[in-house]
Design a protein around this nucleic acid. Structure first.
Lengths: 345, 345
DNA sequence: GTTAGCACTCTTTAAAGTTGAGTGCTAATA
DNA sequence: TATTAGCACTCAACTTTAAAGAGTGCTAAC
């Protein structure tokens, strides 16, 4: 027995209906609301076959059928025809409020949540490495100095330091020069003890200060390497009865709140294969996150420049509206492309 | 009929028991587990009185009693004796991970949530006004310039700008000087059109750039004036059955996620009256937030310097362990005081 | 190959009955 | 006069039973 065209059509109808209602779908429903013109009995026979093939199951003997993960998978892979999403003016909303990367990403999460009624996540871009572009010291007053550290890719970090000895303007300039000479263009691994010693030997009374600054630089590079995750619309999860069981809901919400497990999606998945925006669909157990075994996650990849990319994800029930979600994500990725190309925030 | 000592003792016993169990408390329980040595019948008589006085109610005729908001209020105001909390090494945890204000506050929220099993919120400090301390322009390359804006209180903001005309090193220095001459020490209201015109007339080809920078400064000051709110442990709410009703839970979690309504607690309440750390207890409707009418919120005030303060809040069920919460908060406020006094992050 | 028809299964919902915690009141007691 | 024992009463919560309804699988006819 194989999956012929008619079986495929029936499976599609079952899934579509289940996506809408969240209720098991019976043979009569399919018989009435498709143009196949088959009686419910015939549908029943076909359904029995589809069940044997593993695409659908009955929650209990006298109930309709619901799709299995395998069924959803087939649907997503072959049957779904993407719907171009109507959310067109997201971009204006984005530009209006967000003029910096972090805000922008947070805004993206928020907009998607508002538009889809699912939970959303956005990760910060992942860089391969981070080199020091330059360091700028400024004396704020006699005992305080401001250090601005600029990393490759124009990531800017600043820290205020307090010196024990009174600062001399010329010394600060010299220090600035020394730091830049030694550190410019270096990655964190390249800052070794020898280098630090050599640097310290040149700075006279400011050894303490230099130490602190070096620490700060290390921290800055480190934390820029970490992927941060923004989420939004977590409470949308509670809108779907099949996830609203107190224990499931707590687990899912807690995963969303803690965020660590979500970075998992950054590692996995292809990276932007063709113009499909690297869209990836994880169904149930495919998420590899235990608390999400009753959810599906759809992720897309955005790229801010060659090789530097992050992920946007939509988290909902397995019966999420895949077409709409994929459409919305493609749309959003397009908007992000525009923004990153034209006007770097 | 008035509230004599015995009634008070009984009320206290009822509330204590209810805080622990979350179940209505019957006369027999009180009779057995207090040292009053009274029969359940006597307790019943007293309970009837307490009900008439408005301190307790019965959820239904044949149930035990639970405290009313008025009952909780009396308890919090007069009967509660603060327990010094055992969470002593929070401070080390704090200092280890957090070297910047935002991180620190987020960390505070997280720690409190982990230690209390309630949801928590922390607001950023509220400043009365924000003056420009100085501005530092640096040319990154021929077309990009980095502006670092330092506000009073050492708030640092930075932005990268792209210039249409190629940048000349000396010009950037001049621009820097001009900006500082005109803007240093000014608040946002003081930057008027006349001033802007005058400034622009001095900068030759860089008018466009100056415009952008001024905009950025305005935005920076503005957003620093906004109070941000960090929350943590929102999912703890779901641990309490009386809040786990799907609708209540959604409303509360959604309030916590959106955060706007939470700033409400910053406005209200006394500001640090004596060494009680400005601890304030809002019970049920007292929160003035509709979704929280079944919750209590305990807030405390931290002060980073004279007159600049923010709030820390614990959000839980009405039957939250007030003593422990107040103790924990006082402890935490103490730790924060230490940190802000010794080592400004 | 398709379909009508029917017995069967199993969830869902409602109704009815049972239990038990806790009350209020009364009359007896210290 | 304050306290207590005792008892009838109430009501939510749980259990049991019954009925309804949706949907299936199978058989026999088309």
């Amino acid at each position: 027995m194989d999956l012929d065209d008619r079986k495929l059509k029936i499976l599609q109808a079952i899934i579509k209906n289940y996506l809408e209602t969240g209720e098991p779908v019976g043979s009569r429903t399919i018989s009435k609301y498709t143009d196949l013109n088959l009686s419910s009995a015939t549908i029943r026979n076909e359904m029995a076959d589809l069940e044997e093939l593993g695409y659908i199951v009955q929650p209990h003997t006298s109930a309709g059928r619901i799709p299995t993960d395998k069924g959803y998978r087939l649907y997503v892979d072959t049957m779904m025809q993407e719907k171009v999403d109507e959310v067109n003016n997201m971009r204006d909303d984005l530009l209006e409020k967000a003029d910096r990367m972090e805000n922008l990403l947070q805004q993206v999460a928020k907009l998607l949540a508002a538009n889809t009624n699912y939970a959303t996540m956005v990760t910060t871009p992942k860089y391969r490495s981070r080199k020091i572009k330059f360091i700028q010291l400024t004396d704020v007053d006699a005992y305080q100095v401001l250090a601005v550290i600029v990393l490759e890719g124009n990531i800017i970090k600043n820290r205020m330091f307090r010196s024990d000895v009174a600062l001399v303007k010329e010394d600060v300039l010299k220090l600035n020069l020394a730091l830049n000479t030694f550190l410019q263009g270096l990655d964190i691994e390249e800052i070794n003890i020898g280098l630090v010693q050599k640097l310290k030997s040149q700075v006279g009374a400011y050894q303490e200060l230099v130490s602190e600054i070096l620490d700060a630089i290390a921290t800055a590079i480190q934390e820029e390497g970490d992927i941060r995750v923004y989420t939004s619309g977590a409470t949308n999860i509670l809108k779907y009865p099949e996830l609203s069981d107190m224990n499931k809901a707590r687990d899912i919400l807690s995963t969303l709140e803690n965020k660590e497990e979500l970075t998992q999606f950054v590692e996995s998945g292809d990276i932007k294969p063709d113009e499909k925006r690297g869209i990836q669909v994880y169904i149930g157990d495919e998420t590899k996150v235990d608390s999400m075994k009753d959810c599906s996650v759809v992720t897309a990849t955005y790229e801010i420049e060659e090789g530097i990319y992050g992920k946007v994800g939509i988290i909902g029930p397995k019966r999420m509206d895949y077409e709409r979600v994929v459409g919305t994500l493609q749309n959003m990725m397009g908007q992000l492309d525009d923004i990153f190309k034209n006007k770097k925030p």
